[in-house]
Amino acid sequence: MKIIVCIKQVPNTTEIKIDPVTNTLKRDGVPSIINPDDKTAIEAALTLKEKTGATVTVITMGPAQAEKALREALAMGADEAFLLTDRAFAGSDTLATSTIIAAAIKKLGADVVFCGRQAIDGDTAQVGPQIAEHLGIPQITYAAAIDYCNECGALIVKREFEDRYQTLKVAGPCLITILSTLAKPRYMNVWDIVAQDEKEIRIITFADLDLNKEDIGLGGSPTKVKSTATKQFDKTIETLELDPESAAKAIVDALKERHLI
């Protein structure tokens, strides 16, 4: 079995702050990390590798510095890594991105594709299902557990919903998007850190893929960002400094006034 794991390098958004003067994002010095759900997807693939002898290929799309994320995946135990990078890919929305990644997966060949459920910078959760549709394979999203059934040669997946879960069986090629709660990602191990140094990160560009220019990049993206804005608050109120007793009274009065008590 060959597993391809799609990962994304993201800024650690929990460390992003707003500049109070300019009201813009302060991204300087914000470290890049492997998107948390994706890191668990790597872990899930490595676990399956240990169980079944599968191979694990990690791919990412991004600028040259995304290599760092691939190096980390190799050091966790992935077998090989590919960086999809090309000026023509820049500005892609989720649909165009999924078109590119699906073309790369087609070229590399995979039995199973793992993605994280969603990336913390965009939170869309769209690229995984869109890749699956381009590849014409079934998808299972929100996976909380994955097991391989030897007798039936199928994957058994626990799929989470807000109020329930399903146990699903899928035979044949499929794409699974993985929740970070599925497993705790392993640390990079010393041997693999040394070994990954020897490994080459292979580059895939537009020229390597069966793609039309009009389906990718900014021009191939059906959605466009019209405008962005930082958060504005229009409520201005007086903040009162009160002792606890008067504070309690002020709250009760306000709730009474609104007929809430």
Partner: peptide
Amino acid sequence: SIGRDLAPRLSARLKTGLTA
């Protein structure tokens, strides 16, 4: 968890944009 599974699948099938 249903809408966010189904909508992207459909956007790729109908070849159109989707905003999450």
